[in-house]
Nucleic acid binder design. Structure first.
Lengths: 226, 226
DNA sequence: AAGAACCGGAGGAGATGCCTCGACTTATTT
DNA sequence: AAATAAGTCGAGGCATCTCCTCCGGTTCTT
């Protein structure tokens, strides 16, 4: 309550030990949320940082704020990746490189997966960051399609599905085979390639981004009766 | 305690109303576990059946028993599908047909997904049923590979991964786009096809079935500290 | 009509998760 | 070195959730 998350200009600086602890909290949060997902407790984070729960709650009013503080910068990183990928000359390399990079990030960080693929937490900054990266991604897709390398019936809204699939494999097998997601992604990317002799068309062509948005709202929502 | 799940020969038949309620319970369980997964409560099942909780607990000693009673027969169905697929003359049609059928079943039934992809519940009958269908699946894979239609670096242990991926999409988008999993499966199957000019080999070739078994043990396990 | 079998759903027992509070410790200032 | 503002700690309150039991009342069967 009395303390902002970001070091605002008006707020006096933290005491040295407090600042040190603040960093420990963020590091531990990254570790704990990355491994156990956003369901992890602030008690867990505190314990992992070797601090008391009270200390964490003094610095961050609640879990939401801590999560938001952690992830906003990482989402910027992803947006930058998309822009950098647009600099790559070969359209297929650009697209595939971006996909590999983002899926790799997701595979290491369950919390990131959950925040990228869900809206159910209601962080404004996060939603904005996600919206901001759509144009670059759209360009990546369209460029690779124009070059005849990415199959034409793919759409930017397929990327969340790709992340969902690889992410679920990472979650499933991460404990025993941490790189197995690569196998699945390779398979998917071979399916994304434009093959001259391919007969099949993908079903469900009406896939629109706002359908995915709706899915993001319902996913991981506290269970509703019915 | 006093009542078995299966109608044993020695047990006297249920009273007519009790038998009717027993069926209602099983129907509701199928519905509820199918929609909300194995985390659903027996209270939910009872309420959905228009019965009291006590009635359910009188018939089934606990959740495990009810779940096992529900799913053993469905697992037999899947095993039968594999055997029937082996009757199909074209090896690719046989393999792809089997995959579509099973993924379709999974997509409709979250409980089935969870029980097929996890060992964490410890039902013996279920484990046996799963083991029994391995040979037929192996044959399906090898036959399609021998015919040069299925890419050669695929392995029976990839099927659980396929189910995991499509299942996660079904869970993700099921509320808003119930058929979207078909799109993803089509993509994956195009990736599975043996393409003559394909350069890439799948990474993680050491994938063995027992690695998947281990994953099944850890997945959906109650969270452990650390 | 009598007795056995059955039904219902409040609520006990136990987990779990979020967060507060007040006694205690440490840094900073003068 | 003393004063004081800032920070720390973790037991525990409150709320929620799930599994399951219990027993007064109901329904079936003979």
């Amino acid at each position: 309550m009395t303390q902002n998350t970001a070091p605002a200009a008006t707020a006096r600086p933290l005491r040295r030990d407090a600042e040190r602890n603040r960093r420990r909290i963020l590091e531990s949060a990254r570790e704990v949320f990355g491994r156990r997902g956003l369901d992890a407790t602030l008690d867990d984070v505190a314990h992992h940082a070797g601090l008391g729960v009270g200390t964490v709650y003094r610095r961050f009013p609640n879990k939401e704020h801590l999560v938001e503080a952690m992830f906003t910068e990482r989402l910027e990183d992803i947006a930058d990746l998309a822009k950098q990928a647009l600099q790559v000359s070969d359209p297929w390399e650009a697209f595939v490189g971006f996909v590999w990079q983002t899926v790799e990030m997701h595979s290491h960080d369950r919390g990131l997966r959950e925040i990228m693929l869900s809206t159910a937490f209601g962080h404004e900054h996060v939603a904005e960051a996600k919206a901001r990266m759509v144009p670059a991604i759209t360009q990546l897709v369209e460029r690779a399609q124009a070059a005849g390398q990415l199959r034409s019936d793919v759409v930017p809204a397929d990327l969340p599905l790709l992340h969902q699939m690889t992410g679920s494999v990472a979650e499933y097998t991460g404990q025993v085979a941490p790189h197995l997601w690569r196998r699945c992604l390779a398979l998917l990317i071979d399916g994304l390639r434009a093959e001259p002799g391919r007969a099949s068309e993908l079903p469900c062509p009406e896939l629109a981004m706002d359908v995915i948005d709706q899915a993001m709202c319902t996913w991981r929502q506290p269970r509703q009766h019915g």
